[in-house]
Write a protein that binds this DNA or RNA. Structure first.
Lengths: 251, 251
DNA sequence: CGCGTCGTTGAAGCCGCTCAATAGATGTGG
DNA sequence: CCACATCTATTGAGCGGCTTCAACGACGCG
């Protein structure tokens, strides 16, 4: 694991295909330039490279540009509690703002790249560009919502439902960034999936095999092919939150 | 469950004992007045009254002023997934910003009161008062951190460890707002605790009894007395995150 | 080829769940 | 004021899903 600096490369949000999913969402070209001026791009991250680790000052917000990143806490018994996996266009670094110091570690799961915006600049720009301020709030809110979804998975769902939910989520997110929703390579190990879902590595492996035997997926090591997306999603949504009504419920 | 309006009462953050824990943290008296002008206080909430429910526009940030509030999602099978419990000085309403509509319900667990800041005003003030902007970021970040802590509880800890963690957390939070850390009344039912911790009501009850038999707590219905705080916390921290080092780890 | 890592599969055990009965607290109406 | 219903909490018995422990196979890399 190696720490990286973020020199200014000549890459801009303006020609980034992920811009609409990412921080720049909703900005006009004038505002985009302002954000771009503060943005730093990392040189390529190799597998195992750190974006940040415990004790680092929480100085920047990071956006994954390519590849994937895992976020985890290290426990006193030495092993990792995975908090989340981040794909291109997804944002991390929001935690640790409170104390100013990171508690978590963010590590590239494969060859990846990321963008960083230093908080001082980001805060200053947010004060001047309301739509960026809005987008920041949305991103925070989305992060909270996805953690609520994970809570639900951990408290109410069985091992099979958890893994199904996990695969369905990956499928949706790959599709959003233009990859195939039905065939993708997992960049994380069974152990990392298990940590994330509150299961042991053996259970994850067994459940994968069971989903394969039921014809929902095909497996070749880390390559996953979704054969029956509908059934997979139905399995994961055994206990889903109800959709909020259009208006406040009447009584 | 009944919805409430938030008329302007003559109560201000300036003479609120919770100000330092709450949104106004770090503001000078000039800035405080500005925030106060936007702030609305609710008339007393009775047990079961809603701050918001699914489908309501996510229009305000809420701060609990007295009493306690539970936040939950409603599942398609009808029961609730508790997301969190909020005590005086704690903030809720951050979720739902992304879509503009609440997915969760916030309900008073006992006679309570709350303050509300409409988002449009809040955003405008944040642009003008950097220290309020900072505090908003800190609150968001704190919310994320506490959810990470909950993830850890759900994935790695046993029933006994979960309940111990829960009681220790309540103890700390009661102390922070000037209540006794060693004797408090639970405003939530065993079922609500179970939902929050991913356990059944029977398991929660059994664990309470076991902690009592071990001499760590005393129980009288919902009145909890902590008899051995150190042992209780040690039990909960069986697998805690390591404290981040002062500086970045060297390699 | 040998070694280490990662993933799969099997067997046994345990923790928490399910089902069930009971008691205590609270509220209601006669 | 008491009988009764209802809700919450406690406790027991049995079961099942996931974990633990263990062995083995499949790659990848030196």
């Amino acid at each position: 694991m190696e720490l990286l600096d973020f020199p200014r490369f000549k890459v801009s949000c303006q020609n980034c295909s992920l811009a609409e999913l990412c921080l720049p969402h909703g900005l006009n070209s004038e505002e985009l330039k302002r954000l771009d001026a503060a943005m730093r791009r990392s040189r390529p991250l190799h597998k195992g490279d750190c974006l940040f680790r415990p004790g680092d000052p929480a100085s920047s917000l990071y956006a994954v540009r390519s590849g994937s990143v895992k976020l985890f806490e290290t426990l006193n018994d030495g092993d990792q509690q995975i908090i989340g996996f981040y794909l291109p266009g997804e944002i991390l670094g929001l935690d640790g703002i409170e104390t100013g110091v990171h508690r978590c570690t963010a590590v590239a799961l494969e060859t990846s790249s990321a963008c960083a915006v230093p908080f001082p600049e980001l805060k200053a720009i947010c004060r001047q560009i309301p739509s960026l301020q809005e987008q920041m709030l949305r991103l925070f809110s989305r992060e909270l919502s996805s953690e609520h979804e994970l809570l639900l998975t951990l408290t109410k769902r069985t091992a099979e439902e958890r893994v199904a939910t996990f695969l369905a989520s990956l499928s949706t997110r790959f599709q959003r960034i233009g990859y195939s929703p039905n065939e993708f390579k997992l960049s994380m190990s069974r152990e990392e999936i298990g940590s994330y879902l509150g299961l042991t590595i053996e259970t994850v492996s067994r459940v994968f095999s069971r989903l394969r035997d039921k014809g929902m997926i095909a497996l070749n090591r880390r390559l996953v092919t979704i054969r029956d997306s509908a059934r997979l999603r139905a399995l994961g949504n055994g206990c889903a939150p109800i959709d909020p009504p259009r208006q406040a419920a009447l009584r």
